[in-house]
Computed example of a mutant assay.
Amino acid sequence: MLLVLDIGNTNIVAAIYNGDDRTDTWRLTTDRRKTVDEYRILMVEAMEAREISPNSISHVAISSVVPPVNPILVNMFRKYWGIHPLLVQPGIKTGLNIKIDDPRGLGPDRIVNAVGAYHIYGGPVIIVDLGTATTVCAVNGKGDFLGGVICPGIGISVEALVAQAAKLPRVEIAQPHQAIGKNTVEGMQSGIYYGYVGMVDGLVCRFKEELGDTDPPVQVVATGGFGELIGRGCAHVDHIHPALTLEGLRILYERNRPNALKAKQPQVPAIGAGLE
């Protein structure tokens, strides 16, 4: 089975694929301070809680926007599973033409989302990822990744607002029943929700103008932790796909499979073995 890991600034999202079917998903907190052995314990415990045999994992694909965590997890899979993971980085086969000034500087999460969106929906497609950061990217009908925008994410914006405005409380990030808030909490929720809905719709409209009239028309897909919340309020979002990054990782693994085979039969020590 294939294990894919999407390492974000806040969480590591893991999923198991049996062929094209995603069977299980879980989250771990991203922690740069954890060791190889600590991550191994958490990973095995998560698998066993879902009745997944750790020894059934034969392939691993990783997308990460937190470089310090990469060698820890790569070394973990090499040491305990005997697997050399596929790491999304410059030089892998994507199936897209990267048409930006510095392709090597493109974030792995953006390219993985673009690969997944273009594979599932075709092109042209606009991908809105509402996570720790908010990104909007465009792929044309020929499979050219054209670039996009990077904005502060909802969580970052809320934390900055609360930190810099002493009298403003932390509020639940939720869809309010109307835009005109009747109190501080409602006003903040409205500003957060409708502010990001308006930003996404505005950026998508500008992207569509720059892409021009296309046949077929541009598809817009939203993903990320806040993708469903914000996407369902947007007039110009056509699809909401919470697992787009995971699907993109699976597709990338298949395209690079000859270079991502396991090194030997995996052997996973029991929890606590060798840790006295």
Results as ranks from 00 to 15, higher is better:
residue 59 H to T: 07
residue 235 A to K: 15
residue 268 V to N: 05
residue 175 Q to P: 00
residue 163 A to V: 03
residue 62 I to K: 15
residue 246 L to P: 11
residue 15 A to T: 04
residue 160 A to Y: 08
residue 236 H to N: 12
residue 54 P to E: 11
residue 158 V to L: 14
residue 150 I to E: 14
residue 232 R to T: 02
residue 234 C to F: 04
residue 205 C to M: 13
residue 145 F to K: 09
residue 58 S to N: 15
residue 171 V to A: 03
residue 84 H to L: 06
residue 105 G to K: 07
residue 184 T to P: 08
residue 170 R to P: 03
residue 53 S to M: 06
residue 269 P to Q: 11
residue 114 A to H: 08
residue 233 G to M: 02
residue 205 C to P: 01
residue 242 P to C: 07
residue 227 G to V: 04
residue 35 T to K: 13
residue 238 D to E: 06
residue 15 A to H: 01
residue 15 A to Q: 01
residue 222 A to Y: 14
residue 5 L to H: 04
residue 159 E to T: 06
residue 185 V to I: 14
residue 17 Y to I: 00
residue 28 L to N: 08
residue 266 P to K: 09
residue 57 I to K: 02
residue 94 T to E: 06
residue 182 K to A: 11
residue 217 P to Y: 05
residue 175 Q to G: 03
residue 264 K to Y: 01
residue 266 P to Q: 13
residue 195 G to Q: 14
residue 265 Q to F: 04
residue 224 G to Q: 06
residue 154 I to N: 01
residue 81 W to P: 02
residue 117 A to R: 03
residue 198 G to T: 01
residue 31 D to T: 10
residue 184 T to C: 06
residue 252 L to V: 06
residue 144 D to R: 06
residue 274 G to M: 09
residue 161 L to A: 09
residue 144 D to N: 12
residue 44 V to Q: 02
residue 121 Y to K: 13
residue 111 I to F: 01
residue 52 I to N: 14
residue 104 R to S: 14
residue 179 A to C: 06
residue 30 T to C: 10
residue 149 V to G: 14
residue 269 P to E: 11
residue 113 N to S: 09
residue 24 D to M: 05
residue 30 T to A: 12
residue 16 I to E: 12
residue 22 R to Q: 03
residue 108 P to R: 12
residue 211 L to V: 08
residue 88 V to T: 10
residue 161 L to T: 08
residue 158 V to W: 09
residue 248 G to L: 00
residue 9 N to L: 04
residue 49 A to N: 14
residue 33 R to N: 11
residue 194 Y to N: 11
residue 69 V to N: 04
residue 78 R to C: 07
residue 249 L to A: 01
residue 163 A to P: 04
residue 49 A to W: 13
residue 99 K to P: 00
residue 154 I to E: 00
residue 5 L to I: 08
residue 9 N to K: 03
residue 102 D to C: 07
residue 51 E to R: 14
residue 167 K to V: 10
residue 45 E to T: 09
residue 202 G to C: 05
residue 112 V to K: 15
residue 165 A to T: 05
residue 161 L to K: 11
residue 41 I to S: 15
residue 195 G to T: 13
residue 195 G to H: 15
residue 242 P to Q: 12
residue 240 I to Y: 05
residue 194 Y to I: 05
residue 25 T to E: 07
